[in-house]
Design a protein around this nucleic acid. Structure first.
Lengths: 201, 201
DNA sequence: AAATTATTATAGCGATGACTACATTAATAG
DNA sequence: CTATTAATGTAGTCATCGCTATAATAATTT
C-alpha cells in the first residue's frame, strides 16, 4: 500500500514525469535510431536540462534500457499471444510475420522494429541491451517451434528472425504495408512447405 | 598510350596509391560500418595526414563513393552472371540468395553486404550513395524476373531484396555460413512455389 | 637555375558529442 | 524556523568529429 505513483518524497519535486519522458524519447529513438538521437535532442524534446536527464536515467543507454522495456510491454509484437499451442505452428509463425509487417509500418514516422534497429547501433551498451531483447524473442520462437517440430526449430527460427530483420530494414527504406505484407506472406509459404513435410510430435 | 598508371605529373608526387587506399579503407568500412569509422581511423590506417586524405578524396563520403564503386566491381554478388536467361528464373533467384549467404559470410571480419549496411548509416550523402547502388541491384532483379514473369516481378523483387537485407543483418549478428545458407534455401522454396504456380511468357 | 605546381606535415578550427561542477530552489523532517 | 534532501538552471568540461589554413617540400616546366 506504499504510494508508488506520487510518493511525497523529500527534496525538490521533479518537474517532469520520467515515464512520460520515456514514452516521448521512445518516439525519438524509434524514428531516428539510437545513434542519430543526441542527449541534447532528448532534453530539448522533454523541456529539461541535462542534469535532470542524468539524475533520472543515469546516461543515454540507461534511458534506452527503460525505452526497450516500455517498448516490449506496449509497442512490440505480442509474440506469446500469436504463437498459440492450440493452432498449427505454420499458421501462427505466418501470422507472426504478418503482424511484424503491420507493426513495422504502423507509424510512418517510426518504421521498423525499435529492438532490431537498436541491435545495429554503435554504442556497445545500448546495442547489447537491444540484442538481449532480440535473443529473448528468438528463444520464444524457438521454444514454440521445438514443442512440436524439434528438428526444424533451429533453421525455422533463423528464417523467421532473418525475415523479420529484412522486414524491419525494408520498412525503414519506405516499403509500404502492402509490400511488407506480401513479403511476409511469401516467407509464410516457405514455412508451411517445410512443416507440411515434417511430422509433428 | 598515355601512361595512366604512373603518369609523371607536375608537383610533389603522392606518397600513397589512392587505389590501394580505397581497398584498405573498404575493409575498414565493411568491418565497422560507415559511421563507426572516422577519418582519423582511415588516415591512421593509410599512414597519411588529413590534408593528403582530403586532397585525394574530397571528403569522407567521397572516399565512400570510390569504395562503393570498387566493391561493386570486386566484392559484390555478380548478379548479372547469376541471373541467367537460359535457366529457370526460380533456380537463378535461389542461386542468387545462396550466393548472398556465401558472400556475406565470406570474411568473418567484414560480414554482411557493404552496400546494404551503408544504406543504414547516418550520413545523408553516404547513405544516398549506397541506396543508389541498392536500387540499381533491385532493378536488375526486377527486370530479370519481369522478362518472364511480369506479374510477379514486383513482389518477388521485394521478397528477394528483403531476404538479402535479412541475410546481411544476420551475418552481422554472427550467423554462420550454414545458418545463412539454410535461410537462403528456405526463401528459395517460397520463390519456386510462387513461380511454379505462374505461367512464364 | 628559376618558376610553377601538387602534395606533404604541422597544427589547429569550429561544431557537436556525452556528461558534470556548482550554486540555487523547493519540498519534507525535526 | 532550521536542517536536510533532492531536484533544478547555468554554465561549463573534455573528447572527438569532419575538415582546413599555412608553410615546407619535391617533382616538372621553362
Amino acid at each position: 500500500m506504499s504510494d508508488t505513483e506520487k510518493s511525497r518524497r523529500r527534496g525538490r519535486p521533479r518537474r517532469f514525469d520520467p515515464d512520460e519522458a520515456v514514452a516521448t524519447a521512445q518516439q525519438l529513438f524509434h524514428a531516428r535510431g539510437y545513434d542519430a538521437v543526441s542527449v541534447a535532442d532528448v532534453t530539448e524534446a522533454l523541456g529539461i536540462n541535462p542534469p535532470s536527464f542524468y539524475a533520472a536515467f543515469g546516461n543515454k543507454a540507461g534511458l534506452y534500457a527503460r525505452i526497450l522495456d516500455h517498448y516490449a510491454k506496449t509497442g512490440a509484437i505480442p509474440l506469446t499471444d500469436l504463437l498459440r499451442h492450440d493452432r498449427p505452428v505454420a499458421d501462427c509463425l505466418a501470422a507472426g510475420l504478418e503482424a511484424a509487417a503491420r507493426y513495422y509500418a504502423a507509424d510512418p514516422k517510426a518504421t521498423g522494429c525499435l529492438v532490431l534497429e537498436g541491435t545495429r547501433c554503435n554504442d556497445p551498451e545500448a546495442r547489447s541491451a537491444a540484442i538481449a531483447y532480440n535473443v529473448a524473442a528468438e528463444e520464444v520462437i524457438r521454444d514454440y517451434i521445438a514443442a512440436r517440430y524439434p528438428e526444424e526449430a533451429g533453421r525455422l527460427t533463423d528464417f523467421v528472425s532473418s525475415t523479420m530483420s529484412g522486414l524491419s530494414a525494408k520498412a525503414r527504406h519506405g516499403h509500404s504495408l502492402d509490400q511488407l505484407l506480401a513479403t511476409a506472406r511469401l516467407a509464410g509459404l516457405a514455412i508451411k512447405q517445410v512443416l507440411a513435410a515434417s511430422d509433428p510430435l
